[in-house]
Amino acid sequence: MASVAVERPLAEDAPVKRARRRGLLLLAVLVLLWGFWEGFRALGIHYGWQRPFTVDATSMPHIHDMIWALFQRPNPEAPLLIVTLLKAAAFTGREAALGFAMGATGGFAIGALLAHSRMLQRGLLPYVVASQTIPILAIAPMVVIWLASVQVTPWVSVAVIAAYLTFFPVVIATIRGLQAADHRAVELMRSYAANRWTVLWKLRFPMALPFLFSALRISATASIVGAIIGEQPSSIAGGLGGAILNFAQYYSFQPQNLWATNIIAAALGIAFFLVVVAAEKLVVRRAPEHVA
């Protein structure tokens, strides 16, 4: 029987080419952003813009000054800023990673429970939603106090706060994803007399994976925000949250230090995001129309 030719990219150097193109694109975007920032700054200072904010050397330090600041000592006894910030990023990254893991697992468990029973969903989902309307700033001190009273290490409390900010998208995506299997696919399972667990693991879960990964991308970056915010009530000084608070106090003298910290925090967020994207590439094997 004649077989249909299957299309696939044949050129061996295609991935290399693609990587190079992506690198160039990234570079172009960075250059563009740099040009925009510096251009806005120059025009603003030249014409004395007051709106949307007063443009001067404090509100908009030079980008090269921010980068330069990374390789300076904030004060003579301190190590290079970048060393301090990388240590802080590692610390915050650990909190965020644990929080992300807890939030993702917890979110999946809650979502699976709610997807399982319409009644539970009606009864409990409103509270899950309500939990997200309480500001993290109100929750964080309570979490710290409760967990400190049972001798939980402060950085783990911060992870719990990060988890609080990450689980919600996962809950929603899990509910949607586990119910996304089409009627025929479920009927096929029924024809094999498959039980609920088998249907869950062999059909509903794989079907839910693209939904889950969309949520995990959001959660990955949210976990960093949660960790940074959570460090404040936990009085943790060694993380990015501590660094931000510290440099914010000295902003009028050394604005570039806070901006440098922001750059490192953003880089950490991007790193988390990319890890999720890479995991998705490894795990999800779906028809092109199902992949985000």
Binding site: R184, A185, E187, P206, V284
Partner: peptide, 10 residues
């Protein structure tokens, strides 16, 4: 066997 193949694409 259904009208659509109903294969699991993963």
């Amino acid at each position: 066997v259904f009208q659509d193949p109903v294969l699991y694409d993963w």
